[in-house]
Amino acid sequence: MHLPSYRGRFAPSPTGPLHFGSLLAAFGSWLIARQAGGKWLVRIEDLDPPREVRGASGEQLRTLERFGLVSDEPVLRQGERDAHYRQALDRLLASGDAFECHCSRSDLAGSGGVHRACVAGARRADPAIRLRVPDGTRIGFDDRVQGAVTQDVARDVGDFVLRRADGPWAYQLAVVVDDAAQGITEVVRGADLLDSTPRQIFLQRRLGLPTPRHAHLPLVLDADGRKLSKSLAAMPVDGNDPLPALRAAWLALGQQQAWPACDSLPMALDAAVRAFESDRIPRTPPTALAALHNAAAIDAA
């Protein structure tokens, strides 16, 4: 099957309604995909049922639709892809790249949680599965926004979990398998996941999968410098009045050209795609509250 040259995605977890930080990631990834003339996909990362809020994924998708951000292909749900993750894990176990680990968190407390060797004699009925990371494993990549990034995966991360001891699949395995399955050519997401990228690249190499390009958008912080999703300022965006929040996201993405003066959402989005300059995306944005305040000032002018 022929795939277009660019395929991007937005992958929210169904732990609550979309807040401004989520909208920034969705809008930024959508703009980059649209300007490249490619596809924009939505994936629901529902790997951790205890954290999932009932009905949240449906509400997230409805909110995205109200903002004019609609997946170009059927939405993929990680909760339905157990067999694909199992197949990848079996390959890694068969090659010796993955192994059972009986270590508990307390066993690894002395090393700051970095696993380099299993604790002798540790046994548990439900071992985790980890990826073996040889000493000296350093991974580097060039990020569209953050620039050159290098990490000593062995020293800073260690042998990382692919399947948790309590059963759920680890994010690192699922995201690698799904990005390959969906033919993603560039991963555009928040900078809170920048640290995860080197281990995902290492895992892609172990599985013989392609490595997409990356663009890690600046985190949206509240006035106290906290990540918005963990802040009291993380109020849901209003899908019934999308233009003010889109204007704020436009500013937080560093765009200097004025937000298109259109009352029609489709016309505003089309104009935004034409005017968007990805090289203006900052590594560090204004706070969410500042961005919203600036957008409100524009509306009042």
Rank of each mutant, 00 (worst) to 15 (best):
T63W: 08
I129T: 15
R91W: 05
G110T: 01
G239T: 03
G68E: 01
I139S: 01
L193V: 09
R7D: 03
T284A: 12
W250P: 08
G28I: 12
A125N: 13
R155C: 00
P12K: 12
D178H: 09
E100N: 09
L203Q: 11
Q87D: 15
P74A: 01
L246W: 02
A234V: 09
R226L: 15
E52V: 15
R66N: 09
V42S: 05
A290I: 00
F27P: 00
I298C: 13
T211P: 06
P266T: 07
D179L: 05
F141W: 10
N294C: 06
W30K: 01
G113H: 10
H115C: 15
Y171A: 09
R51N: 13
D166L: 14
E65T: 14
E73Q: 11
G254T: 04
R280Q: 11
T185L: 05
K39M: 01
L76D: 10
S13E: 13
D72F: 12
A288T: 03
R280I: 03
L41F: 11
D152N: 15
V53D: 03
Q60F: 06
L61K: 08
A233F: 04
R283I: 02
P286V: 07
A33D: 13
V149R: 15
P218T: 01
A25C: 09
A25K: 09
D97T: 01
A120N: 03
D135Y: 08
R138P: 02
R206E: 13
R283D: 01
Q78E: 11
E277D: 15
P260K: 05
G112C: 12
A288L: 07
Q256W: 07
S13Y: 11
R54N: 07
V70M: 02
C262T: 04
Y6T: 13
V157C: 11
S95A: 10
G121H: 00
R138G: 08
G183S: 13
H2K: 07
L232G: 11
T211E: 14
Q35I: 01
L253H: 03
M267D: 15
Q87R: 15
A248N: 06
D143H: 10
V133G: 03
G110F: 00
Y171P: 07
R7L: 07
R81P: 02
V187R: 05
A191M: 10
L89M: 03
H102W: 06
P198T: 13
V75R: 14
L269E: 09
V161H: 03
L207M: 00
